[in-house]
Design a protein around this nucleic acid. Structure first.
Lengths: 260, 260
DNA sequence: GAGTGGTCTAGACCACGCT
DNA sequence: GCGTGGTCTAGACCACTCT
């Protein structure tokens, strides 16, 4: 990190400020500022739960007006990257704030309990992407990928079969971390270990009949109705990072969403 | 509309301005302003597609700063109530802008076509709310409701069975409008005819097996997997306005959603 | 060129959480 | 009391659309 050299006053302050924004770029300053904050978080300068400098301090550091910082922070809050607490400060979103785990996990128990399912990797493998995988993940046809099949259980009841695939180039040794993948918070792990922040996802849902493997893993009859969730998880840079197909027994659980 | 009386300068301007905000209320001004704009739209002062006064004009009219108007407009844009076009103006969202109909309709054909299904009211009835209905719609136990069953078809293929219920008090003669309900855009109709703007909804999804009526209406076998969507539609005032359970044949269609 | 929204500035005062 | 974020003000200049 550059030393603070704001004491030197005889040069244009922007020349020496530790963090500056490109003046000539056509992009709005709040957008440049927003992205700069994200880079500093993913680079590890601020970690989950850390308090950011106050809006005024950030404004001074970058040499912009407080209102510009506010707008940048507004968008980071909307993206779930930071949290504001009135009277306390602004914090890097921890991956364990209430709702962080459920941000991309929309299954909830019908009785309202907030339990998260544990996971168990059934199998995994690395290999060249199929044509369909390459298409969904925007990869070249011969790109290497890693595939996982994970079974998730509420208590002792297997409820969800997840089949997902990620580019090998982004997650080179993910296959060695089966213990990590037993617990919720895989996307947190992507962020911590590989610096990849998943900020949004597209999901396509349908009802399907359980096939043989589904039925065996979930303890159901073949043909039982399952909720299939086809998810493409995207990074803040709009890159498709993970493709996942989950099949869920919705006898005692449901998928929640808000339309706005 | 009251005459513009801003020419009179010897009294406090807020006394004579045509639209003012309660000064003592604890609510932020941008929120009061936002709600006032919504009321004027639903009251018919500005209709779908109309251009609103410029932000500066609104600021002058209400006696607030332009930045306050901007924040109110920001939220109305986020809510889909208005649209901004740089260099042209701000417009009341038409109900036929691309995506308005699909805002609360998340079913899409697998082949990517954007066709909307036509509807056909199978039956409707008015009567006292069941305990469950009263609970979901936050109504007193003896409140009157209207129930509809509507079948929706893509082309000639029946694909969705919708069962929904609304408070009679809000939609007193909705039952007389079966022709209207054959076409998409029911929520637009709620807005135009009853001044009720549906701004958001909560949906719970699950996979279920088709029952006898489902199977008959959709031309499927009993037990076929269907996607069930349980929706509570809310007005901007957070009032539950419609409860709807849709059962969808997802053989050639799927439910799309974005997680952010 | 006139009018619109988009961005940015540089302050003000208030509400909230902590100590 | 102090520092924080929440709201609000009153301007400035730029980019875009239309005539």
């Amino acid at each position: 990190m550059a030393e603070d050299s704001r004491a030197a006053v005889s040069v244009r302050p922007s020349e020496l400020r530790p963090w500056t924004l490109a003046a000539d770029s056509g992009r709005p300053r709040y957008a440049q500022l927003r992205d700069s904050i994200v880079r500093r978080i993913t680079a590890g300068e601020w970690r989950s739960g850390d308090m950011l400098p106050s809006e005024l301090a950030v404004a001074a550091e970058y040499g912009v007006a407080p209102g510009t910082v506010r707008k940048a922070f507004d968008q980071l809050v909307a993206n779930g990257v930071i949290l504001r607490q009135h009277g306390r400060g602004t914090f890097v979103a921890t991956f364990d704030w209430p709702g962080a785990l459920t941000r991309f996990f929309r299954m909830a128990a019908d009785d309202g309990s907030r339990e998260m399912p544990v996971g168990q990797v059934v199998r995994h493998e690395a290999g060249p992407a199929t044509r369909h995988e390459a298409e969904r993940l925007s990869l070249p046809n011969d790109a290497r990928v890693i595939r996982f099949v994970r079974l998730r259980m509420f208590g002792s009841v297997p409820t969800i079969v997840e089949r997902f695939v990620v580019p090998y180039a982004l997650f080179p040794d993910l296959g060695k971390h089966r213990p990590t993948m037993a617990r919720p918070g895989l996307y947190e792990y992507y962020g911590r270990k590989y610096g990849i922040l998943i900020t949004h996802a597209r999901e396509n849902l349908r009802a399907v009949a359980a096939d043989e493997e589904d039925a065996e893993l979930l303890g159901l009859d073949c043909g039982a109705p399952l909720l299939e969730i086809d998810r493409l998880a995207m990074s803040m840079q709009e890159r498709a990072v993970e493709w996942r197909i989950s099949r869920c027994n919705t006898a005692k659980h449901h998928y929640r969403t808000e339309l706005t």
